[in-house]
Design a protein around this nucleic acid. Structure first.
Lengths: 206, 206
DNA sequence: AATTTATTGTTAATTTTTTCACATTAGTGA
DNA sequence: TCACTAATGTGAAAAAATTAACAATAAATT
């Protein structure tokens, strides 16, 4: 588990696996770098380099063994015991995230969800126990949760994030479009829909 | 409107504006590159270079004028007439996207939504007219929509995307985690929640 | 068994992006 | 008015990421 992999490579490895997961029981046992590249709008060189970086070696004639590839990506980017994740904010976006993860066959397990809505607290949402945000510190600690997905309304973002960090969260996927100030050692990843859209707007030619 | 801006710069410009939009009527009239950098986890040099690239010039003593900054980013990355956008797939994620855009004060206007659910078709969802996906070609052409946000279930992704492209869509923001094959000239941007999570999982230290 | 072919593995070159370093400069205050 | 301070603006250097190029090679073919 080499922490020196470039972030872009880690992202692509995750994508290779997710794509090939669909292929693994069907079709061919092997795949060429150029095929994989075409399926993900990358170059074959990039694919080969990524696989080289995780010490995976292909067959000069048949390409890469799909199961070996999935396995090697797993031993590289997964933690053996998986990751225990909290979903914080069970609105439309939160529910959508639950749906994605449930289908995805990943080592990321959502083991608790938090909200302030009394109608949601103490129920199950898509099979996940939902707690009041006030219980977050206790549950996160008890359940040893290290990653949080933040899908609360923007006005709640900063306070909620502070609470999460105090509770032992080490990584946050922040969908709130609010800037979060996190101390060193915490891995924060922001995603902002508007930014993505505006980028598309700029680059489409008219 | 210089099409030669690096994609990263365009992303950051969008973020500067979104952040400063909140500041523009309050507080100071100016902001320093180091302040802006701190607010977005960037370096001051990066901020200054980005602003330099769009021809914006600051005051050596006061920093950058916030309104001028917002204005200049707008003339650089916005199309004057705005962008007409379709939301395709009105599930949880689709509704969440609607919410974000409604709040965001952006030039991206969602002017139509599509679904196959009879309960949604011919209603308004968050103020947006909802049509049957079968009417997409007609509506997209009539409304001159150029950008689509794809939030349909994965099994519908490829066919829906094909339909969109045939209808004149030039840019797609794809949330389906399904690979889309698009011809040159079409700007495709993928976002995959699982990939983001797995990246966090890899980089948090334990 | 030798030849051909198409692919991998990897070094080198290139391009892109970020950071450094510092001259320039607008305002401050002695 | 004249230094002083704390910014900006930007060329140059460095780092990161991608792409090109091609030797090595595994299988298929003759």
């Amino acid at each position: 588990m080499n922490t020196k992999l470039p972030p872009r490579t880690v992202e692509r490895l995750s994508k290779y696996r997710r794509l090939l997961d669909k292929y693994k029981d069907l079709e061919e046992a092997h795949i060429y770098s150029h095929k994989l590249a075409a399926l993900l709008n990358l170059t074959p060189e990039q694919v080969r380099r990524d696989l080289m970086l995780i010490g995976l070696t292909g067959n000069h004639r048949k390409g890469y063994n799909i199961k070996a590839l999935i396995g090697q990506i797993g031993t590289t980017i997964d933690r053996q015991e998986g990751h225990r994740v909290a979903l914080v904010g069970i609105g439309n976006l939160g529910k959508a995230v639950l749906g994605f993860i449930r289908k995805a066959n990943t080592k990321m397990d959502i083991v608790a969800a938090f909200d302030i809505d009394r109608n949601k607290v103490n129920t199950q949402v898509a099979g996940v126990a939902c707690y009041d945000i006030g219980a977050a510190a206790q549950i996160i600690s008890r359940e040893q949760i290290r990653i949080a997905i933040l899908t609360v309304p923007p006005e709640a973002a900063v306070n909620t994030a502070t609470l999460l960090l105090e509770s032992g969260i080490r990584g946050i996927l922040n969908f709130t479009s609010v800037h979060l100030d996190v101390p060193p050692g915490i891995y924060l990843k922001d995603y902002d829909i508007i930014t993505s859209l505006e980028e598309i707007g700029f680059f489409i030619m008219d």
